[in-house]
């Protein structure tokens, strides 16, 4: 007796719901830097960079930071990366830094050659789910936060936004007067651990 499978050939129908959850994002062109009093502290974290060094967000206190969650498999992220390379080059001497957080599961083996290929000139850290949770879960990429000199989130962007939005916001923060707390680098409360 030879068993046979009824409906040997079956069709697995996939509905469009998977894609519908990724409908075109609204452009955040209208986003503006939050008023001083509306800004909340950016959660601190510690993650490893490509050289294995432990990096904390609080290491950047006193600088304006563009914190960018991304991944090698994220197409729209590839549009932003050259902008960020340019921003890093243009504004680094004014107290600005881009910090990339890779959400790749493949680790540095995947990310390192990608960074090289893209000519990334800013620090990139290997992300963790814990850090993503600190920043609202990071349910889509790219997700970016602009952090002011006092370590507070001045703006947040989910999905790709225009280069000019970033530029305007960076310039707005750069032109703001440096407060005593930003210049004095007081202790920063460490809210949660990271991947180290």
């Amino acid at each position: 007796m030879i068993p046979i499978v009824r409906n040997v050939l079956f069709a697995l129908a996939l509905s469009g719901l998977l894609l519908s959850s990724c409908t075109p994002a609204k452009q955040n062109a209208a986003s503006k830097v939050k008023q001083d009093g509306d800004r909340k502290a950016a959660p601190d974290f510690s993650l490893k960079d490509v050289n294995g060094a432990t990096v904390r967000l609080s290491d950047y206190r006193g600088k304006i930071v563009l914190l960018n969650f991304w991944a090698t498999w994220c197409g729209p992220c590839k549009i932003e990366i050259p902008w960020f390379v340019e921003f890093e080059q243009r504004y680094k001497d004014q107290g600005f830094a881009v910090v990339g957080i890779s959400m790749d599961d493949g680790g540095w083996e995947v990310v390192r050659p990608f960074l090289s290929r893209m000519g990334v000139n800013y620090r990139t850290l290997m992300g963790s789910e814990m850090v993503a949770q600190l920043y609202g879960g990071v349910n889509s990429l790219p997700t970016s936060f602009l952090i002011d000199r006092e370590g507070r989130i001045a703006s947040a962007h989910l999905g790709l936004v225009s280069k000019s939005v970033y530029e305007n916001e960076i310039n707005e923060l750069l032109s703001a007067p440096v407060t005593r707390s930003a210049a004095g680098v007081p202790p920063v409360r460490h809210l949660a651990g990271g991947a180290d």
Binding site: M1, I2, P3, I4, V5, R6, N7, F10, L12, L18, L19, S21, C22, T23, P24, A25, Q27, A71, W73, C74, G75, P76, C77, M103, D105, N139, S140, L141, P142, L158, G159, L160
Partner: peptide, 25 residues
């Protein structure tokens, strides 16, 4: 894993369950 022009969702794994009937031939 899905993307559109402006954003990507992280890769997902979903379980698939397929009822089948195996008959004697």
């Amino acid at each position: 894993q899905a993307c559109n022009d402006s954003m990507c969702l992280p890769p997902k794994v979903v379980e698939v369950r397929l009822p089948v009937e195996i008959r004697a031939r």
